[in-house]
């Protein structure tokens, strides 16, 4: 159990009760003060991984791991109640911005502070003071009006700021952000990620940022983990991912980032095919059906290769 790592997961596997593998033996760590980006398409298992960290894994899924430590606490031996308290008091959760993470029938002021009240034992006035400070820190001017509003009276950008403010109420020691910029327009996207970055810089709060947008993650993360069909394809510091991508999937993801220098009428790049259900394809590389470099070597099980201490990838080929 290492105290320097905010998250330390070894060999995590998540399956359905029917035995279908959704997350396949992944190991992941998040260092103190670091922003880690987890990138991949829908269905790559990144959200499930985040939900496991947030203690939100649906009950019909089975989760196994060799070790699973969050903020120094061992999830595997911990009691349910203690886990809930740990997540509630020390981990901030910024969900996808679907608008459904705030209760539509409860005013913001009545739902932003209930976790804070529970874990700090402060009174409601102090809680609302803190809420006001945080809400204005995330760039909302009319804080009183916002706190008196219901979630559906707010725009998507406002709601996501409320979510972020809410995740910061308890001075979290770890932030898990699951696609925090989905359904926001691009200027607001930048503001939201800037906010998370500022919190990270101020308090050295480690952030686990899940995204499907490599272009966004590029500017904010120190390290990137690329997931595909429940496996980690590549893991490296952000500069290396872009300077020296080893895995064909990483390369494909970089290629699909739209560039401002595109000519008129030029088609956006895409990765052909669809993500395969893990293991329905049999042994071998999970990406082989869509990979333009696929060879006979890809039919065998793939070993993880090491470029240096911080750069790993899972590909049979040496590109």
């Amino acid at each position: 159990m290492s105290a320097e790592k905010a998250i330390d997961i070894k060999n995590l596997t998540i399956t359905t009760q029917g035995g279908r593998t959704l997350v396949d033996n992944i190991s992941l760590h998040l260092n103190k003060g670091e922003i880690l980006g987890v990138v991949g398409e829908s269905g790559s298992g990144k959200t499930l991984t985040a939900k496991t960290i947030m203690n939100l894994l649906p009950e019909n899924l089975v989760c196994k791991a060799q070790s699973f430590c969050v903020l120094g606490a061992d999830y595997l031996t911990m009691e349910k109640k203690a886990k809930k308290a740990l997540v509630g008091s020390k981990v901030g959760y910024v969900p996808q911005n679907t608008g459904s993470y705030l209760h539509p029938m409860i005013k913001i002021k009545d739902q932003i502070a209930d976790g804070y009240l529970l874990y700090t034992k402060n009174n409601l006035e102090e809680a609302l003071q803190r809420a006001r400070r945080l809400v204005s820190a995330v760039g909302i001017r009319d804080t009183e009006r916002l706190l008196k509003s219901y979630p559906w009276q707010l725009s998507g950008g406002m709601r996501q700021r409320v979510n972020i403010a809410m995740s910061l109420m308890n001075k979290p020691r770890l932030i898990v952000a699951d696609e925090p910029t989905t359904a926001l327009d691009s200027t607001v996207q930048m503001q939201v990620v800037d906010l998370l970055k500022a919190v990270n810089a101020q308090h050295e709060t480690p952030v686990l940022m899940i995204s499907h947008d490599l272009g966004l993650v590029k500017y904010y993360c120190q390290r990137i983990v690329v997931m595909y069909a429940g496996q980690i394809m590549e893991e490296a510091p952000v500069d290396e991912v872009f300077a020296n991508p080893k895995h064909p999937y990483t390369r494909a993801l970089i290629k699909v980032i739209p560039s401002l220098n595109m000519k008129k009428g030029e088609r956006l790049a895409e990765i052909p095919g669809q993500i395969t259900a893990k293991r329905s394809a049999g042994p071998g590389c999970v990406f082989k059906e869509r990979c333009s470099y696929c060879q006979s070597a890809c039919e065998r099980d793939i070993e993880v290769k090491k470029v240096n201490d911080k750069h790993f990838y899972r590909c049979a080929l040496d590109l």
Binding site: M54, N55, H103, G115
Partner: peptide, 26 residues
């Protein structure tokens, strides 16, 4: 099954608060 229940759980709220304040209301 709504997302706000996930949020309530992520906030670590007591079961009574989760069920009475969040779930039962809607």
């Amino acid at each position: 099954s709504q997302d706000f229940m996930d949020m309530a759980k992520a906030k670590g709220l007591a079961s009574s608060t989760m069920y009475l304040k969040y779930a039962l209301r809607s």
